[in-house]
Simulated scan of single mutants.
Amino acid sequence: MDNVFIGSILSALSTGLGALPILFLKNNLTHRWRDSLLAFSAGIMMTASMFTLIPEALKTDGIFPVFVGLFLGVLVLTTLEQRIPHIDLQHSKSGMKIDEKAMLIVAAITLHNLPEGLSVGVSYASDVNDTGALIAVAIGFQNAPEGFLVALFLISQNIGRFKAFLIATATGAVEIVTSLLGFYMTNYVSQLVPYGLSFAAGAMLFIIYKELIPESHGDGNERTSTYTFIAGIVFMLLLVESF
């Protein structure tokens, strides 16, 4: 219990850690750097899904829970995307104006973070001791640039730097709740563990392919983003081998 609580807090509050530089940054970050951060995060999450979550689910209970969990993960994220307005954090060509719908935007970003917390909690409920820590690290590395980009977006909409930092931190903090929920559900109903792991993998893969990769290619930085995506994969593989 202590491990999942600490892991969920650290991974969730990485959003605030990532947003912290916004208090001191004088100039806006270039699109190339933003796209590189997104692609690096995508590589980390891809490796966590394909080399940790799915293999663990397969080893626990075979292929059927993997099929079901992946399908449900994608289905839930698809439903969220359809119900919640998409917020384009990177590109000035599109997106909603925060002066009219600030609370809606914050709510949308927050809800999109919920499956990430769930994946941390489910992973800690797995029988393999290192799985939870690995996924917490992966989500934490993904949350840091996300927090920075959210805060940067809010500042571009004339929100004060400190207030933008607090809002960005709050959007990540909700992951603690879903992390503990996922842990308790799968820990006390052990048959749910492979489904939960696969669900988390499906949700993460949806985010990678639908959100992170397209966003990282939106300003002509495809080659740089490809390199940083691969760097993210290699970085996470090194972490996997280290645990």
Results as ranks from 00 to 15, higher is better:
4 V>G: 08
5 F>I: 12
5 F>S: 01
6 I>N: 01
8 S>N: 01
9 I>Q: 01
10 L>C: 00
10 L>E: 00
11 S>K: 00
13 L>W: 05
14 S>V: 05
14 S>E: 01
19 A>F: 02
21 P>D: 02
24 F>W: 12
24 F>Q: 07
25 L>S: 11
31 H>E: 14
32 R>G: 00
33 W>D: 10
34 R>K: 14
36 S>K: 11
37 L>H: 06
47 T>G: 01
47 T>V: 02
47 T>L: 08
48 A>T: 01
49 S>I: 08
52 T>D: 06
53 L>P: 03
54 I>T: 05
55 P>C: 07
57 A>Q: 12
68 V>I: 11
69 G>V: 14
70 L>S: 11
73 G>Q: 08
77 L>D: 14
80 L>V: 13
81 E>Y: 15
82 Q>H: 15
83 R>S: 13
87 I>L: 08
87 I>A: 04
87 I>V: 06
90 Q>E: 15
93 K>I: 13
95 G>W: 04
97 K>W: 00
99 D>C: 00
100 E>S: 08
103 M>Y: 13
105 I>T: 13
105 I>G: 09
106 V>Y: 08
110 T>C: 13
115 P>G: 08
115 P>N: 09
115 P>Y: 11
119 S>K: 08
121 G>P: 07
122 V>D: 06
122 V>C: 10
124 Y>M: 07
125 A>M: 11
126 S>R: 12
127 D>Y: 15
127 D>N: 15
127 D>C: 14
128 V>T: 13
129 N>S: 15
132 G>Q: 11
135 I>W: 03
143 N>Y: 00
144 A>M: 13
147 G>C: 03
148 F>S: 02
148 F>G: 03
149 L>K: 04
150 V>R: 04
150 V>Q: 05
155 I>G: 06
159 I>E: 04
159 I>P: 03
160 G>R: 11
160 G>M: 09
165 F>G: 01
166 L>H: 07
166 L>V: 10
170 A>M: 10
171 T>I: 11
174 V>R: 12
179 S>C: 11
180 L>A: 06
184 Y>A: 13
184 Y>N: 12
184 Y>E: 13
184 Y>Q: 10
186 T>Q: 15
189 V>K: 14
192 L>T: 07
192 L>Q: 03
192 L>R: 08
196 G>K: 08
202 G>P: 07
203 A>R: 09
205 L>H: 05
209 Y>S: 13
213 I>E: 04
214 P>H: 06
215 E>W: 10
216 S>A: 03
216 S>D: 02
217 H>M: 03
218 G>Q: 05
218 G>K: 07
223 R>S: 06
223 R>P: 05
224 T>S: 11
226 T>V: 09
228 T>D: 03
229 F>N: 06
231 A>C: 09
233 I>L: 07
235 F>M: 06
237 L>N: 03
237 L>M: 10
238 L>Q: 12
238 L>C: 10
239 L>W: 07
239 L>G: 05
239 L>Q: 02
241 E>Y: 12
242 S>E: 06
